[in-house]
Design a protein around this nucleic acid. Structure first.
Lengths: 254, 254
DNA sequence: GTTGACCCTCACGTAATGTCATAGTTTACA
DNA sequence: TGTAAACTATGACATTACGTGAGGGTCAAC
């Protein structure tokens, strides 16, 4: 039997915290005396250890409660989810580290970093790359000799401001899509953003019929370079976009 | 000049957050129009980037404010430090992910182990099986809805080491009982080991009142699976144990 | 001139405690 | 037996970093 302060000292959590855990039903002392004193036993200590373990993994108290109330069914799934979240966090960190490196590099070269590079580490280059790559591929396949030429003609006229605008737009699209990844790619909200994406390409680069748009989607996973860049907005975004673009193309063709 | 939403999309922070940073004086827009609209410039974006770095490193907004207000603040050096801290944080995350993986692994091992009908682990199995079977049966009979849940809750928390310990203990008990089969089940020496058996179940699985303990004994001969497993320690042990457990329960109830 | 997509300011809500204030309890010791 | 030290309790407001939503202006476009 331990009093609050003993438990507090044994475990390192504050008395207030123990009160709190009691109140929310997360960790209730094995006995409460008539005077209201809380008394904890060894079982309670083990539970507290568990709680602290999950806390270390960034679970919220609510989640922990659910896990401990229903251990058998949800624990594994919850752990997998948590793992996923931590992975995401890790990727964000890696991105940040990269950006810092780039910042330092550019400081050493005396270059100013452009805004785009500050918040994301890729620019229009990959859209350009896509044009080139895809245009060349489709040239043979569909005889669309024009797409590449068309896009080159158009993009060559763009100034920095134009690029910036386009870039901002696409950034916005990627970001919003990343936020929609828990939905079905078929959902209207997703399809609407994909529509924006299609318009952006259509308006700024080349005429992009359904077939071609679908092919672009495929490229997002068949070409690692695209996948990597797109997934910086959220792991799995490339694949999500491909699915959504496929669906969009089908709708368009009808 | 960027409006709040643009900055929000570029940086990934919410508009509300930008408002907040403005209010606390952490990031004030370079211009505020007559209509109250906030307008940010490139300098602001850089500041925001810095803020986000420090946030990633778990600094409080107050601390960040102090750092950025400090004229001594050396950009490059700070960035190097930040990089370093980020690496550390990344390692911490990797460790957490590992811990989760290990936990999941051990959960899966536990499952596999219980699927294996190996001699070593059989006793865990029959205890578990008994819990399930008996708990369900007694649920209606005695209203003991808790036993099953209780044991599940408890056993789900056991790690490999715990299981091993329990296994070793029960192995010892079975072996000693097998050696006592030439005595009367009523004898003190036998009853004492049966007492250990009861404690083991009581301590590690669920509260086990006499009635229930007696039921467990019955199961040892009514369910062939149990009989077979137990009799591996010595032919007739199952029946011997049942007798001894009956006697033990009667003694307990007095 | 009316959408629609922005923008603003309150102001209350949330999570996981911290931090009093006020007061009852237990224990040790003079 | 009295009192002080060291516990205990509840209650309630404070804190951090925003989220959320109400209620209402602003602006460009069709």
């Amino acid at each position: 039997m331990y009093q609050v302060k003993e438990v507090s000292e044994l475990s390192g959590v504050s008395v207030r915290t123990l009160h709190h855990y009691d109140n929310i039903g997360l960790l209730q002392p094995s006995k409460v005396a008539d005077n209201g004193y809380r008394y904890y036993n060894d079982e309670n200590l083990k539970q507290l250890q568990q709680i602290l373990f999950f806390k270390e993994l960034d679970f919220s108290l609510n989640q922990i409660k659910e896990i401990m109330d229903d251990p058998e069914f949800n624990q594994k799934e919850t752990l997998m989810n948590q793992r996923h979240l931590l992975e995401k966090k890790k990727h964000r960190l890696e991105k940040l580290i990269n950006t810092i490196d780039e910042t330092i590099d550019s400081m050493e070269e005396g270059k100013n970093m452009s805004n785009k590079k500050m918040f994301e580490s890729f620019n229009m280059d990959d859209i350009k790359a896509h044009q080139e790559k895809y245009a060349k591929e489709t040239e043979e396949k569909y005889g669309h000799t024009d797409a590449y030429k068309q896009s080159k003609e158009r993009t060559s006229k763009y100034n920095e401001q134009d690029w910036k605008t386009i870039q901002e737009k696409s950034h916005s699209i990627y970001t919003r899509l990343a936020g929609l990844m828990d939905r079905s790619p078929r959902e209207h909200e997703v399809q609407s953003v994909i529509g924006e994406w299609h318009s952006l390409i259509h308006d700024n680069f080349y005429e992009c019929p359904p077939e071609m748009f679908k092919g672009l989607g495929d490229l997002y996973i068949s070409d690692e370079r695209f996948t990597k860049n797109i997934d910086q907005y959220g792991e799995g975004l490339a694949s999500f976009m491909r699915d959504a673009m496929h669906i969009y193309s089908e709708q368009m063709s009808k």
